[in-house]
Structures are given as structure tokens and as C-alpha cells.
Design a protein around this nucleic acid. Structure first.
Lengths: 363, 363
DNA sequence: CGGATGCATCACGTCAGGTTATGGAGAGCA
DNA sequence: TGCTCTCCATAACCTGACGTGATGCATCCG
């Protein structure tokens, strides 16, 4: 003969434990309510509601005050455990918010691997020791796909603003693109090449956000129309064709490689000329015998960070983006000079063979 | 430069943990919502609310589904601890509700100590092994005071229904009085006393809920007006005076003692006659040479249980009251006989000196 | 290229849970 | 004994948290 209704689930919640614990500690509903920050009736009827739910009294009046029943004591006794665990979780959340922990999954294209990325990670490490990074080198299309499906938090990528139908735009649909810096496209020619001796009146690009280790008078691409060209990876090749087209010619491309060090070497050997982003030259110094110069038409690409919308609300990710912007911003609004940026620590990240992965974007 | 708002308290609650835990486990808001028993939008916006409160995202979209962020993982990870503790508390509450644990603080007057109380505790022990008892022998006024200030859950007491201004009524103000049984007041006289030979037509009290080990023809108190009386404790003495007054005389009281065994011995020694509740005779058998008989006026006291209002909602207390009623009820509506009640186990509880405490109630 | 799946958003209703005001019981004190 | 202070219970009321169903959009799949 079971006379008890035996409610299948005594749905307790942390709030209930908090209340009972306070009542147990302070021995009075009024004082507990005060400590917990609300009025006495609130606590009083809250307790009454819980009693109704679990079907037994939690407190009984004793003289002017109250006493916890067995059930009330059970609840109060477990409160410590539960509240400690919640406190612990809270603490970890505070660590995340305070950048004392957290993780950022980063991806960037090859020439950023040895320039922007190590600087970024070092800066974050100096300011926020607890934040960990994972890094995956990947070409922009893959990196953006990884962001899209949540495998990567921040993709450092680039796009060619002149491109009409930028494959980038389609890939980044629904994602947030943070513009970081211009990266000038520099002509690479053998030292003493005739194109370098331009009339000095030729305009220099007004701004050069990306590292610009070899300031030189700008070169008109059209002067190189008859050269043999060395092209980079498929997307780079497309950009080359585009730039040349806007200068009115179609380049003769004799070599293609996605290894920009190889491109430089080829130029040094006199096999042809090339158009490389300034960042690649920052990443790997020009070999002797090769000179670089911006173009008169200001060819450049934009270096961007791509994230999911709202990703910057993850503290570690938001802070990483902030530092990333700071590192790639030109100081104040001073004109770009070779001193615009601190020297990159040479090869702080072990270099990997550039473009090790398939570029699936149609070129 | 702290850019994070660092909300001082990430007020988590168990519900949040439950939700995130389910989402982590099932990998999908929709499925988690299904398991938790509500709709997908409910869970979706609940998560959103928590995110707003703690200031960082807990989930991010990943393809068609979602992924937990670091913060979300932190919360989900702590869920096990918290939910286990809640489950444990729940289990203990279920034990209390299922009478597998719990405690009843009991108090009763002396002659119940060796009659009702041991039977009660034994019965509870047989049916509900986990329930523990504490027992304090006390006269009704003290016992009721103890109930009032929460030191005792159930006081087994008695009252004299004939009393006009029963001090009991005042003391039990605001408490619940459960009537348990009539306890006949029996006249104690030496064997062969003339009053015992009454005309057989004298009426016998219709009901005799309390133990009645020696059925005998009723005696008219008035026949004992010239006897020397032995009175009990102050309250018992008051009841004696009252009963005699209603029979039209004032008794000559030669001895007073709150020790009912002593009263019996005195009667056996021929020092006088007495009026004792039947229960005292059940508690301690009449010595040889003493006879007992009910009165023609049906003098009795009521044995009652007194609790705080709502105390029966404490499962162990409620069940104790239930068993107490069962033990003291006369079977069905059969007329009272000497076989009405099971024999009491003799002295299952070590006897204590009766009335060891001051009776503070004015008599 | 539909169809199925999963999340987000909207509009809306309900009730849990807060507030203030007030009443009654117990304890301390004159 | 009676006054007063303290503490809890209750009532009336209001707000917002949180549920629902309907709907839209993105993604994955055959």
C-alpha cells in the first residue's frame, strides 16, 4: 500500500538550491531574501511553489522564524556541489571572456604563413597568454569553405578588387569580409631592366598598406608587353592576365608555378619577368639580381579576413581580428614608406611549400 | 586595454546546462528539443537568450547544423556534474517521499511510552525500514509546546473533553489536533470493594477505544464519595476533581503522586481508591488485590496526536499519523471488547520514570 | 534541380515570478 | 499584561521570460 504519489521527477533547478541554501545559511527567509537581492515575499512564495511541485514542505515555521524540513535540508545540502560546479563553469566562461583561455582556428594563404600569421600569433601570445591557436595554411577558396562549415574561425585571404565576377564574392556569400590591407602587385624584373628607368613623373600609388620593402619608381606594365612572363598559381595567373589586359596586352606566359620562390629565381636567372604581391617578397627576400617595382596602374590585391557572421563575438576570435587589423593597418595616415611596418621575424613559422593544395576555384 | 565587458557574473542555471548538454549530445537543436520535450524554436531562442546574457555565442552554424563554441563546450562539459548532483538530490527527495528515509520526532506522555509508542515505532519499522524516530517522553503541555516551536513533529497527548476551559485548548491554538481514541477512566478499588457489586443494569460505555484489559460492570462514582482518594499528577488531579464534581461530591484526597504504579500499589495496600486511565493499566498490570471498573458516567479522556498544520505533508510524519490512527482505531465498528486491540509488547521501550518533568500548565 | 532537413525569426499567449501593501503570530521588554 | 518589533504569509498586480505554431532561408541529397 503505497500512499505516496511518488512524483516521477523532482525537477529541481539550481535556483531552488540557491534559495534553500541561503535560507539554511541565514536561518531566515527575510535575511536570505535580502542577501539574494529580492524581497521577502518573493522568496517566500518561491519556496511555496517548489513545495507544491515536489509535494512536501521544505520549511516549517518555528516560533517567529523557520526551520528546514528533512526535504529542505536535502536540497540545501546538495546546493554546495551544484553551485560550486556552476561557479566553476562561470569561471571558465570568464576566462574565455577575459582572453585567459580560448582557441582560435586560423587559416591563411601561403605567403601570409611566414609574414602576417606569425606576427599575429606572437602578438596575441604577448597580450593574452591563454589563447591557443591552430593554424592551417590554405588557399583562399578552401580557407573560406572551411570557415563556412565551421572548421576555421578566421581565414586570412585576398581578393583582386578589379575582378569583375570575383569567384571570391560567391564563395564568401553569407560570410563577413574584413578588409585588412592593400597588397601591391610588384613587377619583378632583372636588375637594370629597361623598364625601371621610367620618367620620374610617373605616379606612385598613394597608399601601400602591405609590406613594401623595395620602394621604386612605378613601372608601366605596358612597357613589359613583349617580355616573357612567369605566372603563379591559377588564381594569380588570372590576376596577371587581368592586369595586363587593362594595360592593353596579353602577356606571353612561358612558365607557371605556384611556388613564388621559384618565380623569383626564374626572374633572377633571366627567364622572364613576373608580377608578384609585395607580401611574397616580404615573405622571401628577392634573390640578388632581381628588382621590384609597383605598377603605374596601381595593381594590387586586398588582404582580407573572413569569418562567419558573429564570430567576432567569440572573445578570442574578436580580439584576434582586432589585433590583425592593428598589425595590418598603416600607422596613422602617414604615406606608405618602407618603414611603415615593423620587420617581420624571418620565418617564425616554418615555411611550407606554397600552394600545396588544389585550388578548386575556377580561374 | 581590456576590450571585453567582463560581466561580473555569468549567471548560469541548471536549465541552461541541461539544454547545452542535450545539444552537445544530440548534435542538433531540433533533436535536442525533441528529447527535452519542447519545440525547436523554444530551444533555439532559449540558447539565444543565454548568449545575450553571457555575451558570447554558444553555438555557431556549421553547414546545415550547428557546432558548439568554446563557451558552449564549457557549459556542456559541466552539465554532467551539475545534473548528477541534482539527480542525487532528487533521489533523496524520492526516498523521503517513498518513506525509504526520513525522520519523525515523536513525543508522548508517560503511559503511552510503553503502550502506543513502541507499537507505533515497530509498525513503522516493519513497513518503512528507512524512517528513523526520535522519542521524547513529555507531559502534554510540554509536548505541545515542543510541537509549537518545531522541536517535535508529533505529540501524543490527551485531553479531558469535559473540561470547560481546557488548558489544552489554549496550548494547542494554531496546531492540528487529531483525535485518536477514547481512554476510559477506571476506578481502582481493592478487590471485593462494595462499589463493584452494582446492579447489573448499569450502562456500560458504548465505546472504549483505549485498551480495556479488565471489563467489569460500571461503578457509580457517587458510591465512592466517602472513600479516601489517591490523585495523580496535577492535571490528573484536576480531572479527578472534575469527575467527582459531576457526580456531586468533592473527593477527599490523601495522596498525590504522578507515578501511576505507585497509585496502584497504594490501592493494593488499601490506602484509598483512585481513578486512572485504562491506558495506565495496560502499561503496567494491576497488582494483585486491585480491581478496576469504568464509571457509570463514562468518564474518559481523549488521546490525541498534535502536529503543526501541514506537518502531515511531510511523508514520514503523515505516514506515522496514519499508522497511529490505524493502531488506535477500534476495528470496524464492532463494539469495544477486551480483544479490540492486539496485545502490547511488554516494555518494548525501556520505561522511564513517569512524569519526570515539570508540568508547567496551571492545573 | 526539386525535396527534405535544420536553424532563425515572427507574432502571440500564458504564467512564473517579481513587486508593494497588509495582516497575524511570536518574542522581548516595560 | 500590553506594546512593539520582527518575521512570515497572503493578496493584488504587473512584467517579462518562455512556450507555441507559422514561415522563411540555407544546406545537403537524390
Amino acid at each position: 500500500m503505497t500512499l505516496t504519489p511518488l512524483p516521477s521527477a523532482f525537477d529541481l533547478d539550481s535556483q531552488t538550491l540557491r534559495l534553500l541554501s541561503a535560507v539554511a545559511e541565514y536561518g531566515s527567509i527575510t535575511r536570505a531574501a535580502g542577501v539574494l537581492g529580492f524581497s521577502q515575499p518573493a522568496l517566500s512564495q518561491q519556496i511555496k511553489r517548489v513545495e507544491a511541485r515536489i509535494g512536501m514542505p521544505l520549511v516549517t515555521r518555528a516560533g517567529r522564524g523557520i526551520r528546514l524540513t528533512d526535504a529542505g535540508l536535502v536540497i540545501a545540502r546538495h546546493a554546495a556541489t551544484v553551485l560550486a560546479a556552476l561557479e566553476s563553469a562561470s569561471g571558465e566562461l570568464a576566462d574565455l571572456a577575459g582572453l585567459r583561455s580560448g582557441q582560435v582556428r586560423l587559416s591563411a594563404f601561403p605567403s601570409a604563413s611566414s609574414t602576417i600569421v606569425p606576427r599575429l600569433i606572437r602578438s596575441m601570445g604577448e597580450e593574452h597568454e591563454g589563447v591557443r591557436f591552430t593554424y592551417l595554411e590554405a588557399e583562399p577558396p578552401e580557407a573560406i569553405a572551411a570557415v563556412r562549415d565551421g572548421a576555421i574561425d578566421i581565414a586570412i585571404a585576398f581578393r583582386h578588387p578589379a575582378d569583375r565576377d570575383d569567384p571570391f564574392a560567391a564563395g564568401a556569400e553569407g560570410l563577413v569580409v574584413h578588409e585588412l590591407a592593400r597588397d601591391e602587385l610588384l613587377v619583378l624584373v632583372p636588375h637594370g631592366h629597361g623598364a625601371l628607368r621610367q620618367p620620374p613623373g610617373s605616379e606612385h600609388p598613394a597608399s601601400s598598406g602591405a609590406p613594401d620593402p623595395a620602394p621604386a619608381p612605378a613601372v608601366d606594365l605596358a612597357d613589359l608587353r613583349d617580355e616573357t612572363w612567369i605566372a603563379g598559381c591559377p588564381r594569380c595567373r588570372a590576376h596577371l592576365l587581368d592586369s595586363c589586359a587593362r594595360s592593353g596586352f596579353a602577356p606571353t606566359i612561358a612558365f607557371e608555378t605556384d611556388n613564388f620562390v621559384a618565380v623569383m629565381s626564374m626572374v633572377a636567372e633571366g627567364l622572364g619577368v613576373a608580377l608578384l604581391p609585395a607580401l611574397t617578397i616580404t615573405a622571401s627576400p628577392l634573390p640578388p639580381g632581381v628588382a621590384s617595382a609597383p605598377t603605374t596602374s596601381g595593381d594590387h590585391r586586398m588582404i582580407v579576413a573572413v569569418t562567419r557572421p558573429g564570430a567576432d563575438r567569440v572573445p578570442a576570435v574578436g580580439e584576434t581580428l582586432r589585433i590583425l587589423r592593428r598589425l595590418t593597418a598603416r600607422p596613422a595616415d602617414a604615406p606608405a614608406t618602407s618603414a611603415s611596418h615593423p620587420r617581420l621575424p624571418a620565418r617564425a613559422v616554418g615555411p611550407r611549400s606554397p600552394c600545396p593544395r588544389l585550388d578548386r576555384s575556377g580561374a
